[in-house]
Design a protein around this nucleic acid. Structure first.
Lengths: 354, 354
DNA sequence: TATTTCTTTGCAATCGATTGCGTATAACTA
DNA sequence: TAGTTATACGCAATCGATTGCAAAGAAATA
């Protein structure tokens, strides 16, 4: 009852004049314990308010029942939504989640990996930072025999499972949608091509043009980062020349936002003169005065599936040396006003608010 | 070098033919160890790639070097920003953060508390859920002698530290700002008055009116929740009658957003005819076509200070029985277009994007 | 040289829970 | 009744690291 003293199985064993071993077995429903003692132990445990010491258990078993998650920024809707998905699946299994931010810095990433391995987490989920090039620090996870699951941003390491979306398809869908809306001169804002995700979105864009017999115009492919200003600048430049585009597919919602802001300054009508589609379906896209079409990456689902892959993996562990599962999710096109010329709004049903 | 085998101090001790105790002391720079042995141990530890087993340490010391954070939703900018702040301060001290979501459900909250206490975290940070009324599950944290820090949403429990913002002041500032813009009939969308934060915002609103000799008109106080629709409905109702308001102070950014959307449908000019100020400074507010004024709760600072309070608390622990520190942060008014009638934009400098 | 005082190191217990192995008692068979 | 087989439980080691106490060896003093 006292505030501080933790009750252990030894306290129970003393109280009942039996050994701690028996108490432990009774508590774990070991069949070798008689019904009578088991009940007695259970009752006493309740009375004394016994709580199992997870540290002792962890030391003995080597399992901590906690997993680590490394993301660039927790403070970004996409990542926090993935974490939400992971939590949904893992909490019922008694896991705790340890969250770390890399801040897009490979060194932080490495430090967090070291720390998580020292903590002996039962698994690590990560989305690699933009500045991560070599993977020696990531391979330490495997050397340590800790399950690793990549989500969204991955590295090609044999034996490592991953859950990503089909960025190629996302790029293709966005582009094809614009073409179906009548666009012929589509500009593409593409991110750092060293990152798989941007390369794939770009490839999807190119393929869609090809499939629809639209010539590729390199002047319409603008390399931008994911900032609002970058989108605004890109538009300013494009509109300062002749042969302006009649649509924009941006691989970033933020750059697309900047583009829309700039277009409105220039009195360009959206979507009549220019259709715009972004990527990621950030929450703000649907709150805009002129709601923006975007590609949804289904982050919650991504987290849930990553968690499921992890659970499968640890269940097979006893016999299998290495499992690798690569899940690729289908992105979803969310059509909103910024790209919809049809009178009757005909897109996916509005995403639920809040 | 082998993948799996963990190196312990015993491995080092065998290699050097000394006792594990000596190895342990050498590793911890205990002055009773000779320079020669210390160096030898250090070198060997490096060679063998020794890593301290934090579980063993935790079992021995009772300290896990991890803290728990319980928030309603991680997937909400305010909360993930607070977590970001906590992380900033605690990572350098070697702490891991275990994140839990209550989903605004008191039962989840209680379960997470139990789990965190079993994990023996060194401290718990929490923002209580909306459905939490009694506090017995929270008091278990104290009975367990675990430091507890409330942030933003707190309960009055003696001996518990908290970091909140001055919601009264926030309400006052928003209202006064609208008055200074010439408003005389200010509507207030207020949330559930059972929650301290909404009650305080409401009181701030009332006091500002009083201080400026504006009569309080109960018809202008609308009880809404934090959803877009609620704001739109409130506007629809207000504008269906005579004596319409000339300003709106909403205790929720979402309700304010709904209000703006509805006002635009009604062709009401913002801010000329009606000024609008929200609360929380959600990211979308600055991305809107008509950027919304709002009250910033400085969540990152809130997290940082909460972490500092925690660190102070555990450092005093040896002598002090109970410390309680209540930090109240000043909210910041961010003036944007939705409430600014002056020609020259004169508000706080624009928040950095991304 | 004998005695005292430091240095430096080792022994063994401890933090709780688990578990292989062994054994006392009870129950059963011949 | 003697012998066999379950049944129920205890002993002691284990998971790694830490630490109070004791002791061996070295250095210093008388």
């Amino acid at each position: 009852m006292a505030k501080n003293e933790k009750v252990t199985i030894y306290d129970i064993s003393k109280r009942l004049n039996i050994s701690a071993a028996t108490v432990s077995r009774a508590l774990n429903n070991n069949p070798k314990i008689s019904e009578k003692t088991r009940e007695l132990v259970m009752k006493t445990a309740q009375e004394l308010n016994y709580k199992q010491n997870r540290l002792a258990l962890a030391l003995k078993s080597g399992k901590t029942n906690s997993i680590g998650v490394i993301v660039p920024y927790i403070n970004r809707n996409f990542f926090s939504a993935v974490i939400d998905g992971i939590e949904k699946q893992l909490t019922p299994h008694g896991y705790n989640m340890i969250i770390c931010q890399s801040h897009e810095d490979a060194i932080n990433e490495a430090d967090h990996i070291t720390s998580l391995l020292n903590t002996q987490v039962d698994g690590i989920f990560m989305s690699v930072s933009m500045t991560t090039h070599d993977t020696i620090h990531i391979e330490k996870i495997l050397e340590n025999n800790t399950p690793l699951i990549f989500f969204d941003r991955k590295k090609d390491i044999p034996g490592v499972s991953s859950v990503t979306i089909d960025d190629f398809r996302g790029g293709y869908m966005a582009t094809e949608h614009l073409i179906q809306q009548g666009a012929q001169r589509i500009a593409h804002f593409c991110g750092d091509l060293n990152l798989e995700i941007y390369k794939n979105r770009n490839n999807g864009f190119l393929r869609a043009l090809e499939d629809h017999n639209i010539p590729i115009n390199k002047n319409l492919i603008i390399h931008t980062n994911s900032r609002i200003e970058a989108g605004a600048e890109a538009v300013a430049k494009l509109w300062s020349k002749k042969n302006r585009p009649d649509a924009i597919f941006s691989s970033s919602d933020y750059a697309a936002l900047g583009a829309i802001q700039e277009l409105r300054k220039l009195k360009v009508k959206i979507p009549e003169e220019v259709g715009v589609v972004g990527f990621s379906n950030e929450p703000f896209t649907k709150y805009m005065e002129l709601p923006m079409s975007s590609i949804d990456q289904t982050p919650v689902t991504m987290g849930e599936i990553a968690a499921q892959v992890f659970l499968e993996q640890i269940n097979n562990k006893q016999h299998v040396l290495s499992v690798e599962k690569r899940v690729v999710l289908a992105p979803e096109l969310v059509v909103r006003k910024s790209s919809n010329k049809m009178k009757s709004f005909k897109g996916t049903p509005p995403v639920s608010t809040e």
